[in-house]
């Protein structure tokens, strides 16, 4: 389905939808260090989940496990009914449904903005070039920089680069978007333009998992907030619950340091 239609209120729909991502007791080690300790969570379709936590708490590691940029060693991860195993076909299928936006943008510096966006649709999705380019133009308009299509990433500002990166991920028409601290590498005045694009996306009904330190964004957009520390999920709840009446001491401590 297209990411554009659905403008129905998200919360009402939640119960009726299938589970999009299911994590059951996910473990992950780096050498002897256990980065994820039995992380279990279920993300529904169209749900926007913001993952909070101090640095080193395993937030990024977790979402990088969801599209196999990191391999988990224990537990199960199921994305849209496909379990993430060593089978490459499963990995390919999941990666084609999950888009990812990185902290450092990771645009391809030797390709123009347009080619950055059309490369994967043409080669991984086998889209005709004309169709892919039309899609690229449409997506660039959506993220607000249609005039930059023929420039190279190095010629754009950080905020523009991150918006191109979002357009690039959307060009694969994913069903889930993962955001790994998308605004942490940006100058303050550019953060807003990226967050606006993400809000727009959330309103359009995209299933999103966002690792971020932007509390305003979490409060405004998230359906649910997951708080992680030391590789564990400490607390889960609506933004209202999370910011006003957190239950766990560790959550309170984190909030007191950050707010």
């Amino acid at each position: 389905m297209s990411i554009n239609d659905a403008t129905v209120a998200v919360t009402e729909e939640l119960a009726a939808r299938d589970d999009m991502i299911i994590c059951e007791g996910v473990d992950k080690w780096y050498g002897d260090f256990q980065a994820l300790k039995g992380v279990s969570a279920t993300i529904k379709e169209r749900e926007v989940v913001v993952v909070l936590g101090p640095s080193g708490s395993g937030k990024s590691t977790w979402i990088r496990c969801i599209n196999r940029l990191e391999q988990h060693q224990g537990g199960r991860i199921i994305v849209d009914g496909v379990e993430l195993t060593n089978d490459t076909r499963n990995i390919e299928k999941i990666r084609s449904e999950v888009g990812m936006v990185f902290q450092q943008f990771n645009l391809f510096p030797h390709l123009t903005v347009r080619d950055n966006i059309t490369l994967a649709p043409i080669w991984a999705r086998k889209k005709p070039r004309a169709e892919a380019e039309a899609l690229a133009t449409q997506l660039l308009e959506r993220v607000g920089i249609p005039e930059q299509a023929d420039k190279f990433p190095g010629q754009l500002s950080g905020g523009q680069q991150q918006r191109v990166a979002i357009a690039r991920a959307l060009a694969m028409e994913p069903r889930v978007m993962l955001f790994d601290e998308p605004t942490s590498a940006l100058d303050p005045e550019m953060i807003k333009e990226v967050l606006d694009v993400m809000k727009d996306l959330a309103r359009g009904g995209m299933t999103m998992i966002v690792v971020t330190h932007e509390m305003g964004f979490a409060r405004e957009v998230a359906d649910r907030i997951i708080f992680m520390e030391s590789g564990e999920i400490v607390e889960t709840g609506t933004p209202e619950h999370f910011f006003t009446s957190p239950e766990e001491d560790r959550t309170k401590l984190f909030l007191s340091q950050i707010l």
Binding site: R68, L69, E92, P109, A124, A169
Partner: peptide
């Protein structure tokens, strides 16, 4: 940079495509 590999993987490019379009040119 490692991020280039990760970005191409996340986009679902195969190893050959990643090598030919992203890694080798750079």
């Amino acid at each position: 940079r490692r991020g280039q590999y990760e970005a191409s993987d996340a986009l679902g490019l195969t190893t050959v495509q990643r090598t030919g379009f992203i890694v080798l040119p750079q």
